[in-house]
Design a protein around this nucleic acid. Structure first.
Lengths: 231, 231
DNA sequence: TTCATACTTTGACGGTAGACGAATTATTCA
DNA sequence: TGAATAATTCGTCTACCGTCAAAGTATGAA
């Protein structure tokens, strides 16, 4: 059976799954990479638990979310970075020409935010460029970034275990295109590890109900001292 | 008014517009970058002209397609590369894990195809890499590729007027990520110009009802002679 | 074992989105 | 000008999708 012949039908199924307002609220809420329970998501979606459950099973059937069962809780999260990226793509289209000419994205999202599970926004792009300038990161098109020996040293110094990071079943690092900046930031396992460190050391604080990240004064100092980046 | 606060609603509107089967057929058909009339698209969508017209006005309202009026014909086409990319993203999600493990994309689409209005597939990626090796193309992340003096000479030799190409109201060249190869090919005005030359000189032939491109034996010879690329 | 909590499944209901044909507008060609 | 073609608008109809309450399952605590 030729799948390609029915590609339009497949696209429409996925898009329809995303296109229902309650389901879109669920997906948008999950874009920060966190997992949430069925009831939490039903509240976000502004529907009853039963309705929420129906929506979630639809999203699961379409492989847009995955679920981890833990006792009587079911934790739902986006199925993977691809899903997050496509949602970003849709939000760019949704922004339309308005966003292109008068960027009215709230500055909190522009300055620093999460992109699925790594750093994005101005800060993400600044770090990306800085690491390149410092020759910590060898960049070869959008795919397969890697750390130079210098870079490896620097990341180890942050407490990131590169052995472990490389073992993860995902791409190590790549240029993830930032829709607000239209320039790449660091995605992949390395980007996720970096965000984790930044959160752990309280360089940035995570907003509970959006993907915005707040930079602390400690964060500012450290960014300058460690990377020479003014935020 | 804070647009970001309603981002989920905006996403859902766009996705719902794409998610209707007839509209998905229309969009998918337009992914080759060509413009088509309302009646043609109604046939593709398998609906009556009146229904097709309603769908098209919805797609226009959501800025997914644009229309050029020429006499009594209305030519519809995708609003821009962003739309095509997002549709590609959706089709990747639609492919699901199957596509990841057993790539069952028909080989005709893998070898060479159009991505909106430029060359993609194995051929597109091969050329991209070759131009880089030859130092014709200076690649700086995904954004803002440019031609080196050598590259400029080579492209002019193909009959491409770079003055004109640079004047177009779109990005000159950039790395466009290829979903079948997971590597970049040349997008933007330069990529479009290259495809135009390849079609004009009959190096590749365009399939009428898909984005597949067939490479002619002349094309093979020229690719080898001019670029040192084996196809 | 029994109660409580988390979540899903089922069934009935209502609103809306998409379908078409007929009528209308717009443009070309004779 | 009038006929022919392209496309849209309008009115009506139907089918499906999302909604919820209630009943059902599963897990954990008392």
């Amino acid at each position: 059976m030729n799948v390609e012949h029915y590609a339009d039908a497949a696209i429409s199924r996925i898009a329809a799954a995303i296109g229902e307002p309650a389901r879109a609220r669920i997906l948008y809420c999950l874009m920060d990479g966190h997992a949430r329970t069925s009831t939490e998501l039903s509240v976000v979606a502004e529907v009853s638990p039963s309705t929420g459950s129906v929506h979630l099973s639809r999203l699961k059937a379409e492989r847009l979310v995955k679920v981890v069962v833990q006792g009587k809780h079911r934790y739902y999260s986006l199925e993977g970075p691809n899903v997050a990226h496509t949602l970003e793509g849709l939000s760019v289209l949704a922004g339309g020409s308005r966003a292109r000419f008068v960027p009215n994205t709230p500055s909190r999202l522009r300055v620093a935010r999460t992109c699925y599970d790594h750093l994005a926004g101005t800060l993400g792009v600044l770090l990306h460029d800085r690491f390149q300038t410092l020759r910590w990161l060898s960049v070869d098109s959008t795919e397969a970034y890697d750390l130079t020996p210098h870079g490896a040293k620097a990341f180890e110094a942050l407490g990131i275990d590169l052995e472990v990071t490389r073992m993860l079943r995902r791409r190590f690092a790549y240029g993830c295109l930032d829709w607000s900046e239209r320039r790449p930031h660091i995605g992949g396992a390395l980007g996720a590890a970096l965000l984790k460190v930044a959160l752990k050391r309280k360089w940035v604080l995570q907003d509970l109900d959006s993907r915005a990240l707040g930079i602390t004064s400690l964060g500012r100092r450290e960014m300058l001292a460690r990377f020479g980046v003014h935020v």
